[in-house]
């Protein structure tokens, strides 16, 4: 392993990390602005132009607040909860391809921290670990409401993981690979997977809402029933970590939606740009295209949050287990028949 490789990867990882943090910060601002727009208000407009410095002011406020600790026998676990939530939110970005190869300084630079063969499974693995942050935090708070909130959030995430995994199988049958890089490359031009797998996309989108605990599935934070959810006992930056992790998760899941179904860094006319203006400029546009797509999804998250009211808990479980799972199994069967249509026709004697 040569040192340039390590430097290159470190730079990519640092940039992605900083970008994720920045996006999570400004998602809070965007959320308040979108909410204000939808409710015919002005929104934050005091700190900076259009309230652009508001996230910094919020961060400063959270840092300088008093750090309250409940009387819990599990102090260590109480601190571990937000740490797990934050780190799992950040490590998912390791397998996302942010762009194609750059050609700089006589070498190819891949805009991806690591291109592993099992990228899709890695994302599901990290998702399932993310549940621990909520469960451990809620349990260690030593508070019944926190525990109920944590159990609600965790059971919701575990249930929707099943439908999410099944919905993605139909897509993987079509692409024949688990590597996000190859999935992006297959969608060159306008061959976006959403046109071939609309049902899979719909199920994945609904499950992504449930996995990130966003409205209409934010049962874990039902104030009227649960005070504040699993982070009731948290204060100062520890609570900030939970909220921040939620926004980072939203950013990452928007990116995964864009990469899996909306072509990733591909845009119409990319091959023309590569031919006429070179690889690097085409890639800069590619990163811009991915950025626009994921911002669209983040806006969609916020739009839904301020439009649709929250479900009841039994409705949530009904939707997950009785509607989405049979629907995704049906989708798998249909995809299988379409993929093997030639063999089936030959077998039937046509």
């Amino acid at each position: 392993m040569d040192s340039t490789f390590i430097i290159e990867k470190s730079v990519v990882i640092l940039v992605v990390f900083a970008f994720t943090m920045l996006m999570a910060m400004y998602s809070t601002w965007a959320e308040r602005k979108v909410a204000a727009y939808l409710q015919d208000r002005v929104g934050p407009n005091r700190a900076g132009w259009g309230g652009l410095l508001q996230p910094l002011a919020d961060g400063l406020k959270l840092f300088s607040k008093e750090e309250f600790e409940p009387n819990t026998p599990n102090r260590f676990l109480f601190f571990t909860g937000p740490a797990i939530a934050m780190s799992t939110a950040l490590i998912t970005s390791a397998v996302i391809p942010w762009g194609d190869r750059f050609h700089l300084f006589g070498r190819d630079i891949l805009l991806q921290a690591t291109d592993i063969d099992v990228a899709m499974l890695y994302i599901f693995g990290v998702l399932s670990i993310g549940v621990y942050g909520i469960m451990i935090g809620g349990w260690a708070s030593n508070n019944k409401f926190s525990l109920i909130g944590a159990i609600r959030a965790a059971s919701q995430m575990v249930s929707y993981e099943v439908a999410m995994g099944l919905s993605i199988i139909a897509l993987l049958m079509m692409t024949g690979t688990l590597s996000l890089r190859e999935i992006s490359a297959q969608q060159a031009g306008m061959n976006w997977n959403v046109f071939y797998q609309p049902l899979s996309f719909l199920i994945f989108l609904i499950c992504a809402f449930a996995e990130t605990n966003r409205t209409p599935f934010d049962l874990a934070e039902c104030e009227t029933e649960l005070i504040g959810g699993y982070h009731t006992e948290y204060s100062s930056m520890k609570m900030g970590f939970y909220l921040f992790a939620e926004y980072a998760n939203m950013f990452i899941s928007s990116t995964i939606l864009a990469v899996l179904f909306f072509g990733g860094y591909n845009y119409p006319g990319m091959s023309w740009v590569v031919e006429h203006w070179g690889v690097n400029i085409a890639n800069v546009f590619g990163i811009g295209a991915l950025f626009i797509k994921l911002c669209g999804f983040i806006f969609f998250y916020m739009w839904v949050r301020w439009t649709i009211p929250r479900f009841r808990y039994d409705q949530l479980m009904h939707l997950g287990w009785r509607i989405l799972i049979p629907l995704s199994i049906f989708n798998i069967i249909i995809t299988g028949i379409v993929l093997l249509r030639v063999e089936i026709m030959a077998y039937l004697g046509f």
């Binding site: 499974l121 599901f124 693995g125 998702l127 399932s128 670990i129 549940v131 965790a154 993981e161």
Partner: peptide
């Protein structure tokens, strides 16, 4: 790699979470 990730998903992500529940 595959075995490692499936191990994490199945044991840590599913079985142990239900156990904790």
């Amino acid at each position: 790699q595959f075995l490692a990730i499936v191990h994490v998903i199945v044991y840590s992500g599913a079985i142990m979470i239900l156990m904790l529940f």
